[in-house]
Structure formats: C-alpha cells, structure tokens
Design a protein around this nucleic acid. Sequence first.
DNA 1: CTGAAAGCGCTTACAG
DNA 2: CTGAAAGCGCTTACAG
Lengths: 339, 339
Amino acid sequence: MKRPTIADVARHAGVSKGAVSYALNGQPGVSEATRQRILAIATEIGFSRSNAARALSAATAGAVGLALCRPARTLGIEPFFMALISGVEAELSARSYALTLQVVADPDAEIAVYRRWWGERRVDGVLVCDLRTDDLRIPALEQLQLPAVVIGGPGGTGDLSSLWSDDEAALTETVEYLVALGHRRIARVAGLPDLRHTEIRTDAFAALCQRLGLLDAVTVWSDYTGEEGGRATRRLLSSAHRPTAVIYDNDVMAIAGLSVAQEMGLTVPGDLSIVAWDDSPLCRLVHPPLTALGRDIPAYGAHAARQLLAIIAGEPASRVQDETPQLTPRGSTAPPRGR
Amino acid sequence: MKRPTIADVARHAGVSKGAVSYALNGQPGVSEATRQRILAIATEIGFSRSNAARALSAATAGAVGLALCRPARTLGIEPFFMALISGVEAELSARSYALTLQVVADPDAEIAVYRRWWGERRVDGVLVCDLRTDDLRIPALEQLQLPAVVIGGPGGTGDLSSLWSDDEAALTETVEYLVALGHRRIARVAGLPDLRHTEIRTDAFAALCQRLGLLDAVTVWSDYTGEEGGRATRRLLSSAHRPTAVIYDNDVMAIAGLSVAQEMGLTVPGDLSIVAWDDSPLCRLVHPPLTALGRDIPAYGAHAARQLLAIIAGEPASRVQDETPQLTPRGSTAPPRGR
DNA sequence: CTGAAAGCGCTTACAG
DNA sequence: CTGAAAGCGCTTACAG
C-alpha cells in the first residue's frame, strides 16, 4: 500500500502543504472551515503524518524513553514494573507519544543509552527509575539537557524533576500498627541497599524504632528476589530472639518469607506477622493473604508521564509528592502469640 | 549541547557527507582505511546518526512494535510478558533497533495501533502476541504488508511468519506423568478460551484423556487471573468426584489454586497434585514449590525478534517451532493418597 | 573509490 | 488568512 503524504491531502483539498500542516497541528494560519475540511479529507484518504519527517523538521521524536536496569530475573517477577509501564503508556498514548523501552545491565549502560537516545534524537525525554545514592545518571542527564523525570526521591535528583511517595510516612504507619498489635521485635527485609528509597525506609525504620524503644529492630538487606528474601527470612527466624513481625520491601520477598515460615513450622500470623510493601494481586494469591502497603502504581506511572510531557512542552522542572502508600490489613498480621 | 551531524564528521575527516554515510553503513564506496578514519572521528566527536533523518531518507524506522492486549491487572502479574520483553529487547538492542511498546484494550484497538504505526512509519515490523481463533489482526497486517511475526500457532497465522512451542507434546508429557503417578481424575484450569494455544491444549487434553480412558477429565476456563483461577479450583474441589490433580494454564492461577486447596484443608501434594504451565520464579516461591512446565521465555522472545528482523531485512516468511516446554517435577506432585 | 545533488515528508518563518 | 520556499540530517543513485 502506498502511504498518502501531506502533499496528497493538500492536492485533494486544493490548498498548500503548509496549510495542511497548520490544520493538522491546530495552529493559526487556516480558517476554521478550511481546517475542518482538511481534517476530513485527511481522515478520508487514510493519512497519518510521517513520524520521521515530523521528527526531523520539528526536532521532536514523539517518543519517551524508559530504561530498565534490573537483572531480567527480577524484572519479570515483580508486578511493579508492568503496572508502572501500563500507567505510563496509557498517558503517553492518549497524547500520541510512543514509549521506547530498553533493558540495560547497569547504570553505566543506562547512561550510554541516554547518550545514544539523545544523539539519535530517539526520544524527547526519559523516565528514570530506581534512584540510587549518588546517582551518576543525574549529572549525565543534566549535562545532556535531556528532559527527565526521576521516579524517586525526595532528594538526590539534582535539577531534574522528580516524583515520589512518602515512604517514611508509610513505614511509620506500618510500624505503629504492628506495635499496636503488641509486637516488640520487628524486623525488616530491605531491597537493594544503594537504592534511595531503601535508604529512606531504613533510616526511618531505625529512627522510629529507637524512638519507640524497639531495641531488637533489625534491617537485613536483600535484592528483591524471592530466593534472597527467603534466605534472609530463614536467617531471621533462626536467631535466638527471632522477630514476631517482618516487613518486606516487596511482594515477592514477602511471599518467599511466608513459605519459609511455613516450611519452618511457624504459623502465620500466629507465630509471625508479615507485611509486604507494594501490594499487588500476588499478595491476595497466597494463604493467608498478605497485609500490604499499596498504592495505585499505574496512576503513579501516569503522573510521571504527565509530568515529563509538561517538561518536554517547556514547563519548568517540578518536584511532586504523590499519594502515600496505604496499609491494607489482611490475614498475615495479628497480635503475637504469647510466649 | 549541540549535536554533531554527519556534515561535522565529513568536515573533520575532509570527505563528503556521502562518504561518511557509506562508512557508517558499512557499504562499499569508501576504502577500508578511510572508513576506519571516519569511524574514529565520528566516535571522537560524539556523533550519533539522527534516527529521524535516517528514518526519513532510508524509509526505515529502526524500531519494532509490540502491542500488548490484556487488561492491565493481568499484564502486571504474569511474569511471562516481562520475560518475553526482556528477551525481545536484548536481541533488538544488540542490532540497534528500538522497541516501541503500547498497551491496548482489545484486538480492534490493536489493529488501529498497527494502522497508525504503519501510517506514521513508526515501526519496521511488529510482534503479535496472544493469537486467537479467527484472529482479525492477521488479515489486517497482511493488508498493510507490515512485517510481522506471530508468537503463537501453529496454524491460523495466514501468510505471516510465526513462532510457537509444541504445547500438545508438553501437555501429553504432563498427563502421562500424572497417570504414571497413579492419577485417574485430572482436571485442567485453562486460560482464555479464544486464545489459540488454549484451544490447542484443550483439544490435546480431551483427545489424550479419551485415549487413556480418563473419563473424569474436565477443562474449566478462566482468564489467567489468580482470582478466577482460585474460583475455578474451589468449584473443582467441591464437586462429588473431585480431581486428584489439576493442571493450570499459568503460574498465577496455579498458586491461587494451591492457596484454595490449603484453605479447604487439603494437603498438596497428598490430596491434590498441582502442575503449573509457564514455570517462573513464582513457582519456587510457594510452599510446596510447584511442579511446572517451563521453557526459556527470554530466548523465545529473542528468537521471535531475530525472526522479525530477518523478515524486515527482506527474507521470506518463516514458520518455526521453538523449544518444547519441559516438565520440572517439584514438591506439588505425588501419587494420589489412597481413598 | 569519491563528490555533488536530489530527495525523503514534514514544519516554519517569510512574503503577500 | 494563504502560498512558495528553505531547511531538518540523512541516504542513494548518478557522474566523474
């Protein structure tokens, strides 16, 4: 099939190519009547604007980039990313932007991808995930002046726009809930230690437990995989003063922790209460269903996308706090059985 | 930052823009020495080719499209898609192709996306998932003459290329294994009934069970969600002649089934054996770990991507049978407890 | 093996 | 409000 071009529309409408372009872009330069006629003809002959030509002359790619920098095995299993992507994508496609996705091995490779995207004019901006402490991607993006929204923070995002949720508040709510149930020995299985939000949660947990006088509070680090989450749980439950409640930094590790508890002959929630961060359908899949900290992740992604499109449109950088995760109590938490 | 263009490289190298283009594309027209010199200069001044300009003049988008047509809630939770995407992406980025992702609501919307991508010259080809019976996307893509690889089959893919795994063989291996363990009442919780691979599995299951004289063999349909998988399991386990083994069409439903069995006071594998299709880390997360039919899904995605790139490069359509899923026995299957 | 030039399909100042 | 024209940064026949 031969694709119609703007010249075909112009010929059919009896106007110049320029007029068609103005009509298509909703810009002044054509009368409303002419605009409508041009648009109708464009639809009629099945015209779509060539993205390449538009990208070249208008210096806009019509696409937004997302580089995902976790090992493939972690990526696949956490529902978080797919949920985020679906939200991002919904917002982008409503505004006729495409989403370009790339999986990278490490932050250096990710920076290389940003440079290439910038050089190739592949994307008009990027969404940055998994903010780290002293994240080298931030100065790299600042230097490229590539529009970007960092999904993470607050803090550590330089002059770039950012979007985050109040993990400190969510953690506080969770710990206070567990304390109200009667727990005094609470542990936490954290995600990768150099991620900024892990750091925020760890600091908040330490400070809060000290304030509440929970001396046995301990954080152990993991990598978000079920394997590591299970191992960490096994270690925790084997210690002399084993915790009566564990907070996990993601759903997958929490489910692995539940299995380990069952395997060690402990009942949940009788012997051990479990809370999962990042509520997902997985949490309702297991028995007992997991108490979890949830938020609307597709909406989170949609907000980030909208924020990025605003910056691409020329608005100044912004820092936005999104919805705070809410605790949904389910069957995995209860008062500790008296011992 | 000002982006260097091909003209800058040409000036630095003291050659014409055409020569730089030939050097970049590895085409005859420049001597090997000149090519090396041009490439070195390009790297030195940080040149990347504008994708827009290349797309416009070479009539190639440098991108491949993937439209995902499941509701967001199913998408996020099944590890399958992320694993597939990571494999696709690895293959594409190794050949400097980008992956354009779009989430769509239904097959009609998906066809509209293909038309738009074609009209905008956004992608050079597409990967088609979730092949259905009488799939309208097939004639639409044939009409557009948009290069495509259908991940699914065999059959029902018209003149398009396709890639599939032998689900009939995998199902047969599984049923024979369960029968060897002593199971006679085997049920199957299937995915969406209008998906081609569900149909293939259902037909194979019915034929095989009849051949083996398993008269209670029953297939119930579901939608891949844990919720529906759990409901189907509850129904099966409440029937007078409840099955002693259930085969699930995905990992998520199998885990939900396990929870339901536990909730109903049945032990797995003592009272009920469970097999999950699409082995994933989730299957090893639960207790007992699930016996599962697995294959290398990133490799599957990579193969599909490679096949598509070959077609884009002008090779004829091909139909390829990929690796057959392998059964990995774990703790969720055993001989049925005598009753 | 190399250079000059047309052309891909748009957008956008610039005249009218 | 509209038209003619330059230009975006490449690729690719076409001459030399």
